[in-house]
Every structure is written in C-alpha cells, then in structure tokens.
Design a protein around this nucleic acid. Sequence first.
DNA 1: GGCCACTTCTC
DNA 2: AGAAGTGGC
Length: 684
Amino acid sequence: MGMSGSGCSIVWFRRDLRVEDNPALAAGVRSGAVVALFIWAPEEEGHYYPGRVSRWWVKQSLAHLDSSLRSLGTSLVTKRSTDSVSCLLQVIKSTGATQLFFNHLYDPISLVRDHRAKEVLTAEGVAVRSFNADLLYEPWEVHDEEGRPFTTFTGFWEKCLSMPYDPEAPLLPPKRIIPGDVSRCPADTLVFEDESEKGSNALLARAWSPGWSNADKALTTFLNGPLIEYSKNRRKADSATTSFLSPHLHFGEISVRKVFHLVRIKQVLWANEGNVAGEESVNLFLKSIGLREYSRYMSFNHPYSHERPLLGHLKYFPWVVDEGYFKAWRQGRTGYPLVDAGMRELWATGWLHDRIRVVVSSFFVKVLQLPWRWGMKYFWDTLLDADLESDALGWQYISGTLPDGREFDRIDNPQFEGYKFDPNGEYVRRWLPELARLPTEWIHHPWNAPESVLQAAGIELGSNYPLPIVEIVAAKARLQEALSQMWQHEAASRAAIENGMEEGLGDSSESTPIAFPSETHMEMDNEPIRNNPTNNIIRHYEDQMVPSMTSSFLRVEDEETSIELRNSVDNSRAEVPSNINVTEEPRREVHGHAIMQADRTNDAFPHTNFSRARRNSEDSTAESSSSSRRERDGGVVPVWSPSSSSYSDQFPGEDNGIGTSSSYLQRHPQSHQLLNWRRLSQTG
DNA sequence: GGCCACTTCTC
DNA sequence: AGAAGTGGC
C-alpha cells in the first residue's frame, strides 16, 4: 500500500482535532487509505505565535487525537516545520498520497496559507478538497437580500436562525481507518513548552481536560445541567454556569454543529413543556455560539480587521505607554476589585467569564489607555481559548469600533459593574483574599470605606491593597483630551498629505514603535505596584491596530465609498475570484473565496465582491486623507466597508497574478515576519 | 386599549 | 446614551 497507484490521502488536521463530525477525515476514509497529519508551524502565525496555555492545550489534544486514531487503525503523523505548504509537499512525496483533505479556517493567515496549499498541491497533481467543519454556515452563505454581508451581529444572527436550510447534520466518527504507508515519513517530536513553562502549565491540568471526547463530555454536562439556568445566571461574574466549551471549540475538538443540534433538541423539549426560562436560556446560549460564528464571518469578509485600524484615526490615538500600569493590570492590582479579581482569575486559570473579559479589557483601553496590543497579547498568552477571530471581535467591540459596538468615549465604571455582576462580592472575595473581610457595601469601592471598616477588615489601602491606579473621573477627562489630540494629529496628517507628502506623517511618526514590554513573567514579580497617579504620563502615537473607528466618528467619505461599493457588487457579481484585477485588489479576500472553491459549485459568491470594488488612487490614501469627521447624528450607520480605505495601500504596487506572487509566504520569506502586523500596515 | 414612566440591556 | 421591554394607571 501507499504506492502512488493506490493513492492514499492525507487528512491534514489543524483546528479540527476530532474524529467525530470531521468532514475531511470522513472524506479521507471514504476514499481509502489515510495518513492523518498534523503540522506544527507556529512561526507562520507571526505575531500571534500561540501562547503558553494554547500550546499546552494543543499538546494534550493531539495526544488524545492520536490515541483515538490508533484505536481506529492508524495514528497521527506529527511534523515540525516553518512552512506548512512545503511540509505538505514533502509528506505527499514520502507517502505517495494523491489526495489532500482539510477543513476550512477563516483567520487571515490560514486563508492565505490554505489557498497557497491548494494552488501548489494542485499544480503537483494532488487532488485537494476542503470542507466546512467549523461553522453552521459558511460565511458566504449568509447575506442580506441584496447579497451583501451583514454589518451587525443582530442581522447576521437572525439570518442564520432563519436560513431556508438547516446546518449540516453531524457525521459519526469513522468505524475504522485504513492506514496509509508512512514508513518513509517519520514523525517529528513536537515541543510545545519549555522548562520555564512547565510549572505554570501543571496547574492547568487540574482544571481542564483537552481532547475531543472530553469536549463531548463537557457538552453533555452542560446540556444536562447549567444550560437551563443559563439565562438566569448569565449576569454573574462566576464562570461556573458557563459551558466551558470555548477552548474545545477553538481547537475543533467538538463540532459546533453538534452543539447546535443538541441544544436545539433541548429547546424543542422545553418549548413543549412551556419552560420559558429554559427556552430563553437556549436562545442566549445559541447567541454566544452565534458570536463565534460572527467572528469568523467578520474575519472572512474583512480579513484586515485584526491587523490594523480599519479606519485610520485610532492610529493617532495617544496611547499611554506605562509599563507600571500594564503590570498593575496584569497582576490584578489596579485598585478596582472587579478588575483585579478578573485578572487574578485569568492568571490562575487561563479562563475568564465573557462579562469580565469585557470589564478588564475596556478598563485597559479606556481607563488606563494602554496600547491595546499589549492587552491583546497578554490575553493571547494567558487565555486557554485564545482565538484570533473571537479576540479581534471582542477588542473591536469594547473599543467601540463596530457599527453595533460601544462608543469609544464611554467609560464603564467598574464599581457599578461590580455590583451588577457580583452583587454579593463573592467573586471578588474568592480572587482577592486581601479584601475577603470587607463588607459587601464597600467591596467594590474600598477607597470610600471608612477607616474603621478598613481596619476591621485588615486592609491598608496603598499597602496591602492599592488605591485606584487612575480615578474614573480623571480617566474620563484624560480620554476626552486624548481623543481631541487624536483628531488634531489626524488632521495634521491629512494636511501633510494634501501638501503632497505621499503617505503623510502617520507612518513616519510611527517609526518608533511601541515595543511590547519585555517578557511578562508575572509569577516572578510580586512586589507591590506603586500607584503614582497622573504625572509623568508618557504617550505614544502609534498604530496599535485598534481595528476601526467608532461610528461616532464616521467619515463622510465612508458613506460615499460604501455607495460605490454597493454599486460594484452588481457589476462584478459574476466574477469568480480568479478573474479579478488583482493588482488593486484585496488579496486575502480573493484567497478567502478562492480557497473555498473546491467545494462549491460555481454559482454565486454573493458578496464576494463587496470589498473587492476597485478603487482609484485617491482611495488608496483614503485611510489618512479621508478625515472629515462628523459627530454622531443618530441614524447614520457606517457601512462596513473598511476594506475600501485600506486595501490598496496595503500592497502598493503589488504585482499581479494570483498564482505567482499571491502569497505572503513568497513575499515575506522570513516566516516569523510573515504577518508582522506593523509591517503590513505600513506602506512601502 | 393607549400612554407614560421605569427598568434593563446593549456583542 | 438610547432602544426596547414592563408595568401602572
């Protein structure tokens, strides 16, 4: 076996580490002998090299998958590489495989890489097929009546729930797998953690059991227990009532379609019983599944949204560069109990309730005004379910940069949120033992507590628990000031551009990037934070990739562009990705669609061209030049066409032809810089 | 049944 | 902050 005549197939596992409802695996099994392959090429992720806890999870999950595959008759071949595509080629050569199957991913890096894989391998005579294993509906299946992608979650999700056809029913695991010949394809031993990480990782194993069958158990537990109370409990900071499925879902250990189907069954059951609370719980839980879907949807339709501000203004936001603040936030020593409890939980468990994620990250951006990339990076390193699409959506949401998100100039008060999400202070007491004896009345604002109360609780503010690192009132003023500075800088930059400086000040003034603070070994540094309020604030202007500007600062040009885009949808609808005028096009978008082609009949990519509208050279500087802003006037919803302002200067003078130089790998051969976000976002 | 004040929630 | 929902009159 394994001779090219018989032609075994490669099933390339990525974030679909399961044997159940895995369409790529099923296709492989159907077509004969299978080589199950996992390639560890973290450098391809560039800036988003997987964090410590993610790597821990992958390691466990792969071991689990391997043992499942062994019980079915084969095993998992693991490969270490810095270039997945060449690794695939090599495996194909050494196994004589003639087919490659894999499941879709929607993050921008994967879209590009997978497209390239398809091209390269097809050229080598390999039959490549890819499948949907991650979503209820593929992103291009969900659109409004005019074929345009939705720009708000609500619209998107309503459509998903009222689609004329149901999501595919989950597939059963294969009964048996015929192994391909891997005798000339030795596996590499993968290293997922270094010595310094082992200690911290050991803690994780106490709370979490990665692996697809454990994911299945977690689902069952949730369906039979917390789900029915989900709506009642959802406002609590306590995570005990959540499903705990997100890391499992991130690594594809469980199929979202299976989750959906089983939850739906419960819904019907409870509906028949007239259990209103149960029904509502289901709706709310499904909504959080929907958000995950939406994050992929956004990533697919607007692949740059993670990398850079979609509208350029935020790159002029004067971020406060203060490692002391950053450290205080990480250590949970900001002086705001709810924030601090969250940060301690995150560190201890790799987990945080969704609500609390919003609290700590919006505190980070709006109160501390730290460069948000620091925060995202920290999340990336510490969250077990770190997920590029979901995290990008989350940070955009809290930054108020989504059409339906919050506004940037609104600061939520952690004190009030504390009483909302943790009315009895239990959550704070669990994670902040130093406050354990403080009465509930003061638990979320100890700085107001009478001295006698503090004394009785054994608290000395500024000593064993900090005073607020920044007062909320001061933060509000500072935020206003920062925003007005942002507008001034933006205007200055625009003026410079109008005076003929090609790319304006923006990029050059960014040439001193805000480096990420040297490694953050939080467990090492336990010395108390000194809170030195106000003075010595250092601000930096830098594109911190806060995705886009809030609707309050909608630019006039955007409306125009969106109209233009709308028209172009019809004009170019018939196009198939390979036809487009690539020179000016958003490459990844193209890939994003092209990549899916193998599994689609060629009918419609309904909104494929939405963000593909060609733009003129004026548009190519739109990001910096289009600055006339106006205040929020109520009804105007920005059309989510950010691509318009950033694509063409993204790849200036790019040569054409999808086939030749279409990939980042080719253009950025140093793979660790493959998606160095800053580079990409700079011109030239 | 309609109107207004009050509450709740916003991905 | 503003919309949508709730409940009183």
